[in-house]
Every structure is written in C-alpha cells, then in structure tokens.
Simulated scan of single mutants.
Amino acid sequence: MTLVAVITGGTSGMGLDVAQRLDESGLWKVHILGTNQQRGEEAAAPLNNTTFHQVNVTSYQEQATTFDKIFNEHQRLDFVFANAGKAPSPPINAYFAKHDTGIPPEPASMDLLNINFTGAIHTCYLAMHYFRRSPEETKGNRHLLLNSSIGGLYPCVQIPLYSAGKHGLVGFTRSVGKELWEEGVKVNAICPGVVITPLLTPEMKAIYAEKIRIPMENVTGIVLKILSGNQVTDSKGVRVPGEELYSQVILIVGKNYYFVDHPEYFDEETSLTHSDMMITQSEQERRS
C-alpha cells in the first residue's frame, strides 16, 4: 500500500525536508507544489518517489487542477501539508509606510495574506474534497496539517500582516478540527519559531538571535510524530493519545514543543457561548 502526500511550498525549507523524509521511507508517493520550475525540478530529481508540480497557491484553479490530477493518478489522498508561506524582506514592511498627502497607495504587502492565509485555506478546502473520495478504510488516518507560526500565537510588530494570516490559520484549525474529525480527518497546526530555512534572510538574521533559531529537522520530527498516529507527549509532559490528536496547535521552539490550548474561559457565559459556537453540523441535525 502506497500512501499519498501533497505538500505546498514543498520545493525548499520545511516542506522539502518533510518530503525527503517521507520519500526515503519508501511508504509514500509525494507531490511537492511550488512556483519555481527550476528549483522544483532540482528538489525532486534526487528523490525516488517525489513529483514536482508548478503551482501558485494564490491561484485556486491551479491548485484545484493539480489536486485533481494527483487524485486521478492514485485514487487516494492521505496527507496534505498546507505549508506554503512567505515573509516580507526586509521584515519591517510597507504596511507602516507613511504618505504625506492624498490617498495612500494600497499596501504592497497585502499579497502576504493571499499566500499565507487564503492560499492555505484553498489547500485545505481541496484536501477535504479528495479525502472524502479516498477509500473508506483511510478514515481516521487522513491528515491535514497547517504550517502556522509562533507569530500565529503572539503578535509581531515587524510583520503584522504575516502575523495576522498565521493567527487566522490557528483559528481555522481550531474551528474545523472537530467537524472534520467526524469525517476521519485529523486537522492540526504547527507553530514553529524562527526556523533555519531560505526564508531566513540576512535582514531577519540581524533581528533574530542565533540562539533561538531552530533546525528544520526539529520541525520535521514533530510532523512525523503527528503522522505516526501514536500518542504524542510534549516537552511539559502533556500527553495526547493518537485518537485525540486533532484540533491541536503545537508550538515549536528550540528543542521543545508544546500543545497550546485556546484562551481560558473568564466566566460561565464565555464557556457556554463557545460551547454553542462549537456545535457541529451533525450535532445540529441530531437536535432538530
């Protein structure tokens, strides 16, 4: 049995590192998506079980056509890593630019939301469509993983639109995880700190100390733990059984990783309101 993975932003950095580990296991057929044809072909060339597809994640049609092609080839989908992302360089971005008179120009950095948030949501939407068409026996072992950021948990004054998009991915994961688990899909998000990837530009290195930078293999290790289906224990000893590993948000910093819960309930009304907000479609149908 060959498992099938789709990784956006898979031609370099964390996406490629995960692809390489899956490829070398011999258990997976891996499809990496990226915009740069040359880089993608060079990334896939030394890998035996990996195919590159030139795709711009900001184009829904390009993503949809590629997902459909992959599914028609394999008739199954087991793992989707919504990993494609971009950080502005230099980090202090045009959103804070000052303009003396007249109507200011549209912020140039708005494309960050299209890549980091909208593109990822489209990836998830397509993943669910093809998970549903996969063999029934794959239910419970289908994985949708979103690559958020430490900037999706804490504010970042240097790159506010990047942080906003990554916060959105955390909220999306927590919002859809319960409903999609009823369909046998485990949706989780990872929130790495400053990872040593091609996105770590010289300008960013000047801001983020070497002490806090994370090797890519630390992140890949967490991804593989999630895919294993086994119990995962974080650096504080919090244990999450494999069958409960969905709607989880995992912070990765240094050599450590932590399950991050949603904000506390301040009173009974807060708790009850949120409880009503989390009623799934099937629960609504059972109540009606």
Rank of each mutant, 00 (worst) to 15 (best):
T2R: 13
D17G: 11
V18I: 15
V30P: 01
I32D: 00
G34I: 05
N36S: 15
Q38T: 13
R39D: 08
N48R: 15
N49V: 04
T51A: 13
V57I: 15
Y60M: 06
K69L: 14
K69Q: 14
K69C: 12
F71L: 09
F71Q: 07
F81C: 01
F81Y: 15
P88W: 02
P88S: 11
A94Y: 00
P104A: 09
P105K: 10
E106L: 09
P107A: 12
P107H: 10
M110W: 07
L113P: 02
A120V: 14
L126E: 03
M128L: 10
M128Q: 11
Y130R: 00
F131K: 00
T138G: 02
T138I: 11
K139M: 09
R142K: 11
L146Y: 09
N147W: 00
S148V: 03
S149G: 08
G151W: 09
G151Y: 02
G152I: 05
P155K: 03
H167K: 04
G168C: 04
V170T: 12
G171Y: 03
K178M: 05
L180R: 03
V185M: 00
V185L: 08
V187E: 02
A206Q: 15
K211W: 06
G221I: 11
L224T: 04
G229I: 01
G229A: 05
V232P: 09
T233W: 12
D234R: 08
D234Q: 12
K236P: 00
P241R: 06
E244D: 14
L245H: 09
L251C: 08
K255N: 14
Y257W: 13
Y257H: 12
Y265N: 12
D267E: 07
S271F: 10
T273L: 04
S275K: 04
D276V: 01
I279D: 01
S288A: 07
